[in-house]
Computed example of a mutant assay.
Amino acid sequence: MARDEYRWIPDQHGAWAMLAVPFLAGTFLAPRPGGQHGLLLAAWLLAYAAVFHAQQWLRLRARGLRSASRHGRPALVLGAAAAAAGLPLVALHPRLLLAGAAAAPFVAVNTRYALRGRERALVNGLAAVVPACGMLLVAGGLGGADPAALWRPALACLLYFAGTVPYVKTMIRERRSPAYRRGSVAYHAAALAAAAALSPWLALPFAACLARAAALPGRGLKPPLVGAVELALSAALLATLLLAF
């Protein structure tokens, strides 16, 4: 892939599992998954990429940096593509506008942190998790699922992906912080108890999450290996959700 083309793809590699797992869970937990889900997935991923570039454009422009220009065209083109994919769905299902309105405050939080150059802040990461996990409700509803049947898998996704935010910090940026490590382990212990209450099957992937939060920080693992572990746990979560619910 050419370098300029690569720049159109957001370099937030850890975000892709968070974008995909709740969406796929909602799609395949629904009684009628279909072609509309493909269109929704395209709109979702394109919108994420467009917002990423728009936030980077705002951040760099606010600092008077010429490098902001490289994000302008991707933001516009990807935003237009997201609209082209999403507008037919909105015409058929106007309630999707409610999902967009619900996500807007969290996008606003992320934009504010981007403007301040603090995208790696804990609160910013947690704010990004909420609309991503909310896509389980959107995808499930599009496929005719009963909303009452979706809240438990959606909450399980929220518990899991919220935990990845402090955990990844203990592996990279906050790897020398005992306080972060203790906080991460405490969160994962509480998340294990909460997930097991949602479904006993969820105790399996969440116990693995607790084990990695306790055992892996401080071992000097390289970021690609950290990412591979998270990818495996995300896949295990998705499989468990589909089996349990």
Rank of each mutant, 00 (worst) to 15 (best):
R7K: 12
P10N: 07
D11S: 14
A15K: 05
M18F: 08
A20Q: 05
A20L: 15
V21N: 03
P22I: 04
L29C: 03
L29I: 06
A30Y: 01
R32I: 03
G34T: 06
L41H: 09
A43T: 14
L45T: 12
A47G: 11
Y48L: 07
Q56R: 13
Q56Y: 08
R59P: 04
L60M: 12
R61Q: 12
S69T: 09
H71M: 04
R73L: 15
R73P: 04
A81V: 05
A83D: 08
A84D: 13
L87N: 15
P88I: 12
R95F: 14
L97Y: 09
A99P: 04
A101V: 14
A103K: 00
P105H: 02
F106C: 00
V107D: 00
Y113S: 01
Y113W: 07
R116K: 10
G117E: 11
E119V: 03
R120E: 12
A121R: 00
V123M: 14
N124Y: 10
G125W: 01
G125I: 07
G125A: 08
L126H: 02
V130H: 01
V130A: 06
P131A: 04
L136D: 00
A139K: 01
G141N: 10
G144M: 06
A145H: 01
D146G: 02
A148P: 00
A149C: 10
A149P: 09
L150C: 06
W151G: 07
W151K: 11
R152T: 07
C157Y: 02
L158R: 00
F161D: 00
A162V: 09
V165D: 03
M171Y: 05
R182A: 14
A189L: 15
A189Y: 12
L192V: 12
L192S: 04
A193F: 13
A194M: 07
A195L: 11
P200F: 10
A203F: 06
A208H: 04
A214P: 09
P217T: 05
G218A: 01
G218T: 01
R219Y: 00
G220R: 02
P223S: 10
V226E: 03
V226D: 02
A228D: 11
L231T: 15
A232I: 07
L233K: 05
L238M: 09
L238V: 14
A239M: 11
A239F: 11
A239S: 14
T240S: 14
L242S: 08
